[in-house]
Design a protein around this nucleic acid. Structure first.
Length: 1055
RNA sequence: GGGCCAUUAGCUCAGUUGGUUAGAGCACGGUCCUGAUAAGACCGGGGUCUGUGGUUCGAAUCCACAAUGGCCCA
């Protein structure tokens, strides 16, 4: 016997029971254990940053991962799923800073790095609990008891090993480059962090600065002379434009577009030079142009520095600074066509500086204030030269007093002082304010400064070719990411700035000796493991209670192998993206242990995250793997879209449109959430989340499925059906009807399609096919076959129907298991475990169904489709004539147009006749020669409906015998409703009483007595007053009134 | 400023390599069916398939440009 299934169902309660069952029985572990001998399927969990409560957008990737891994498990693969947590990084630090009301690095250090990092550690774990609870409740199976955690010493040690490998390959270097720098946080931001903080409405100065051309031809070039002669001794200025006045003291060159035309314009106090095309924008269109020159004519011209007391150190072969250079980046759409170059404060500026051997001048401190000292810069050539020089050279920049305007102020505040100062010196042509796009720190809202400083780099450009060729081996879903977003990113690869001047992160494992060599180029040691560290001579600071984090690691020093001085760790920590990208190695503490596990799980068969990870985790995984092993570390990757709200807007705390997944699960259940998110939108698109649509999903899919299941178990119990291995082709083939064969054919087709789609990493399409099948099963197969389940004989036909429906439901619950694991389990427990003690304990331990191709009958599938179509047209024809479906009609004429279709329909004629309630079906095939065209049927006494291909005409003649039959069905329907209203059991036999003055109704009851009794389980139809205690209703049928009453035939026994 | 993706009914989405009259669900109005159904069926209103050009006998589909939105990058 099957457990009784209520048609009303509380999915939330059901899921909690099943969760308990899984836990108690250890089903997840078992599902992995039983596949131990199967082929291995490696899955990498992208570690969530545990710096906040999980949102509904985190649910999406979790359940995609779960669906795929469950599917593969059922397909026989061994799929361990190790959880992981990303615990380091700025986001965690920020959270702690906020809670402690700290606002600067100085305050953190005052608070104490040890205490601060301790807080960070706690903060990371606090959120992990919430994530675990959500993951479990969602039914996502993940080994959260043995996760990898990026803050573990063992994890850090593996990261150190990786760094050492790269160090030895010469792929790590310290570069002096321009990076987006947050002066408040005191660190560089990675490119993806910068992307978080662009603002379109940033207000900044827009200033036009006059750079005076050298009045005397100190450089004896012809160009210089010509300009000098032209001015007739009067001052000539190169007009440049900038929105960052604070960078002007760092200026060492001006750039022009070589092919552009430049005008020399006469103004009151001399001449201005700027691009022709920008005269009007600069407000100079009314002035006289005295000469036109090409940009290339200006190249090499020298001008006076804005601040003439800057001490620049040149070496042999260096060209002087403060000259005009050519640049292909010079815009002729804004500014003046003359670009101010400050190599310390712009990426392009820096590149130009390297190319042109320009000095790099710093006038701003790392905390963002204008310096009170002067810092001398060096060109790349100067650095090389000094490095090679045998004579010791003091490389520390000479610091001398320099009174810059706004000294000591934050640069954005100093802008005004600089502008005022230039104005007072007559070097300001124009000054206003504009709004434009500018990056701000996503954490603290400070404006970012592009700032040249020393940062540790991984030379990813050194393996660019390998990155690209490795990408070719990866299957991307959707595929366009491969050559689009990701491929593009690889094509434009730049070296990875992977150090952070922060506190809470994997410490960079490089030690530095300040004693030997010069202070600018000291001896470095990269330590690749704890053993290596312990083996250093004269080691100190390594304590028993090992914590590799700052500040403890900073205390570890050892003797310099070259000079015996102290080696001190560099202050930086490693970018947390490096942590997560290291997980293929570090999750196993490879190579220090678990070599077998590492090998078995490398590369991953499958990873899945949202699209923003193309530049995040997908990239850090791919680059580290390529650097280390010269091959990609994942084969298949699903790239998901983002979850947005019902209006398509991004969910954010500030908008208040964030949805808490726990609330959704508690209201609707995890399965509903899972199915809705998988089915509603293809993975790569943005997912609009609306609880209204989720409710619809429950009604449309879950309740339909549930009721089919409850229908089956209800009748199967009544008939004591015991599932037997009876198939369409076996023991009693004749008992199976066309519709049985059809639904089994559809079932096999479904199995085949779902497998294929899942193999192609497309759960959405797979789930949509299942939805289609459930609709067919419920609204065609079950509806058409109800009578076979109701009838009283327990014959082969009935058994065939049960067997068919049972098989559909069992197969369905297995197909559903990867998507909606709870309801699938419920079905399985009742349909399989309840009747077969040898069955596996859980649906998730069973094998995924395999389609039997022999049972797929495409012709049958299209035949039934045709029958559905014709039935639909038949109903339309009836509706046109206004005749209820309950009223039988004499004849329907159907035109299908082709002989094949005629035969097809003939084989299903009974179904169509019952469906549209006609006594006879005339099917017209292909029009024979000489026959009239059947395109426009115009048949008297018929009602016709048609579509492009077919038409159906139903006879609207109503002879008395048909009316009588209609009345009988009317009576049956009322009695059935009364049974239900009276809350009788479905199997109760009844006695029916009726009273009517209408002779025709009496006649009908007499003529159709057997039919009415059979349909309503009436033992007797008694014409007369009902006794007390019966349930009665009055109805109008065919313009006559009839009083009906019913009572249970064996009422005493049932109560 | 650049790249990728999207734009189909009021809403959410289908629409195979170009090929009859562009579909489904929800919502709305009407009718019907029903002892599995918070279900279902039929009819109806609702579409310049974002726009403009182009290729073609034929374009929602291919191409170009533009607009809007999302994501990524500057």
């Amino acid at each position: 016997m099957f457990r009784e299934v209520s048609s009303k169902i509380n999915f939330v309660q059901l899921e909690e029971d099943i969760l308990r069952f899984w836990k108690e029985q250890g089903i997840f572990d078992e599902s992995i254990k039983i596949r131990k001998e199967g082929p291995h399927y490696a899955f990498y969990e992208g570690p969530p940053t545990a710096n906040g409560s999980p949102g509904v957008h985190h649910v999406l990737s979790r359940l995609y991962k779960d669906a795929v891994c469950r599917y593969k498990t059922m397909k026989g693969y061994h799929v361990p799923r190790k959880a992981g947590w990303d615990t380091h990084g700025l986001p965690v630090e920020l959270e702690v800073e906020n809670s402690l009301a700290l606002t600067s690095k100085a305050q953190i250090e005052e608070y104490g790095v040890a205490r601060f990092n301790d807080r960070c550690r706690q903060s990371a774990f606090k959120y992990i609990k919430e994530w675990e609870a959500m993951t479990e409740r969602l039914g996502c199976w993940l080994d959260m008891e043995h996760p990898y955690i990026t803050l573990d010493n063992s994890y850090i040690e593996s990261c150190w090993w990786i760094t050492k490998q790269l160090w030895e390959k010469g792929l790590i270097y310290q570069g002096y480059k321009v990076t987006p720098h947050c002066a408040r946080c005191g660190t560089s931001l990675s490119s993806h962090e910068v992307a978080l903080g662009y603002r379109d409405d940033a207000e900044d100065p827009s200033v036009y600065i006059k750079f005076r051309v050298e009045p005397s031809p100190i450089s004896e070039t012809a160009k210089q002379k010509r300009l000098y002669e032209l001015s007739g001794g009067k001052a000539t200025y190169l007009l440049a434009w900038t929105t960052t006045p604070w960078t002007l003291p760092g200026n060492t060159a001006l750039a022009v577009a070589p092919d552009a035309d430049y005008a020399v314009v006469k103004v009151d106090d001399g001449y201005l030079i700027l691009a022709d095309a920008l005269l009007e924008q600069a407000g100079l269109s009314g002035y006289k142009v005295v000469k036109e020159v090409k940009g290339s004519d200006l190249a090499g011209v020298h001008y006076e520095p804005l601040y003439n007391n800057i001490d620049i150190r040149y070496v042999k072969g260096d060209e002087k600074a403060y000259r005009v250079i050519e640049g292909d980046f010079v815009s002729l759409e804004e500014g003046t066509g003359i670009v101010h170059i400050a190599p310390a404060y712009g990426e392009i500026d820096f590149e130009v500086g390297e190319r042109e051997n320009l000095p790099l001048v710093h006038t701003v401190e790392l905390n963002g204030t204008v310096t009170t000292n002067l810092v001398t810069g060096f060109t790349p050539k100067a650095r090389e030269y000094i490095q090679r020089s045998e004579a010791p050279v003091t490389l520390r920049p000479a610091r001398g007093k320099l009174d810059l305007p706004g000294a000591g102020k934050f640069v954005k505040d100093a802008d005004k002082d600089i502008i005022d100062n230039l104005k007072s010196r007559g070097l300001l042509f124009r000054s206003e304010r504009i709004t434009h796009t500018y990056p701000f720190c996503w954490r603290c809202q400070s404006p970012l400064l592009y700032y040249a400083k020393q940062t540790w780099y991984i030379r990813t450009t050194g393996v660019k070719k390998e990155l690209i060729s490795g990408n070719a081996e990866i299957n991307w879903y959707p595929d366009y990411i491969k050559h689009g977003r990701f491929g593009d990113w690889l094509e434009h690869n730049v070296d990875w700035a992977f150090s952070r001047e922060r506190y809470w992160g994997t410490p960079l494992n490089i030690w530095c000796c300040e004693a030997c060599g010069t202070s600018e180029f000291p001896t470095y040691e990269c330590v690749g493991s704890l053993d290596e560290l312990r083996a250093q001579s004269n080691l100190s600071g390594l304590t028993a209670a090992l914590d590799l984090h700052r500040p403890y690691v900073d205390e570890i020093t050892f003797a310099c192998p070259k000079c015996g001085g102290r080696m001190q760790r560099v202050p930086e920590v490693i970018d947390c993206w490096f942590d997560s990208g290291a997980m293929p190695v570090a999750q196993w503490h490879y190579p220090f242990e678990n070599e077998d596990k590492f090998t078995q799980n490398f590369p991953a068969d499958f990873i899945c995250e949202a699209v923003d990870q193309t530049r995040g985790w997908f990239y850090s995984l791919h680059s580290i793997s390529t650097l280390l092993f010269n091959r990609p570390c994942f084969k298949n990757v699903i790239c998901l879209g983002h979850v947005v709200d019902a209006q398509g807007e991004k969910m954010s705390k500030s908008k208040g449109n964030v949805i808490d997944p726990r609330a959704v699960i508690n209201n609707y259940g995890a399965d509903a959430l899972r199915w809705y998110m998988l089915v509603s939108t293809p993975g790569e698109d943005n997912h609009r989340f609306s609880t209204k649509m989720l409710e619809e999903t429950i009604r449309k899919f879950f309740l339909t499925l549930w009721n089919t299941y409850s229908f089956f178990s209800l009748y199967a119990n009544i008939d004591c059906f015991i599932p037997q291995p009876l198939t369409v082709d076996s023991d009693q083939p004749k008992a199976f009807t066309e519709l049985d064969r059809w639904i089994i054919s559809e079932l096999n087709r479904l199995v085949s399609e779902v497998s294929k789609l899942m193999d192609g990493y497309n759960p959405t399409s797979a789930a949509r096919r299942i939805e289609g099948f459930v609709d067919n099963l419920s609204n065609w197969y079950v509806r058409r076959n109800r009578r076979r389940f109701w009838k009283s004989e327990n014959d082969a036909d009935k058994l065939a129907a049960y067997t068919t429906l049972y098989r559909c439901l069992v197969t369905l619950c297995q197909l559903l298991a990867p998507f909606v694991p709870f309801i699938a389990e419920e079905l399985y427990q009742n349909l399989c475990r309840a009747v077969d003690p040898r069955a596996r304990e859980s649906v998730h331990l069973t094998d995924f169904p395999v389609a039997d191709q022999a049972e797929i009958n495409d012709r049958l599938n299209s035949n039934v489709e045709l029958a559905m179509k014709i039935s639909s047209l038949g109903r339309a024809a009836r509706a046109k004539a206004g005749i209820k479906v309950r009223q039988p009609l004499g004849k329907a004429v159907v035109n299908v147009g082709a002989e094949g279709e005629k035969k097809a329909l003939e084989s299903l004629a009974t179904e169509v006749m019952e469906e549209i309630n006609v006594k006879q079906l005339v099917i017209l095939g292909e029009a024979k020669e000489g026959e009239e065209s059947r395109c426009h049927p115009d048949m008297p006494d018929y009602s016709v409906a048609n579509d492009a291909k077919y038409w159906v005409a139903v006879s609207i003649e109503l002879p008395p015998e048909l009316i009588a039959e209609g009345v009988s069905r009317e009576l049956v329907r009322h009695l059935q409703n009364m049974r239900r209203n009276a809350k009788f059991d479905i199997t109760d036999h009844i006695i029916t009483y009726y009273q009517t003055k209408e002779p025709c109704i009496k006649q009908v009851i007499n003529a159709f007595a057997d039919y009415i009794k059979q349909e309503t389980l009436s033992q007797e139809l008694i014409n007369g007053l009902p006794p007390d205690g019966t349930y009665g209703e009055k109805h109008r049928i065919a313009n006559g009134e009839v009083s009906l009453a019913i009572k249970q035939a064996n009422a005493k026994q049932t109560s």
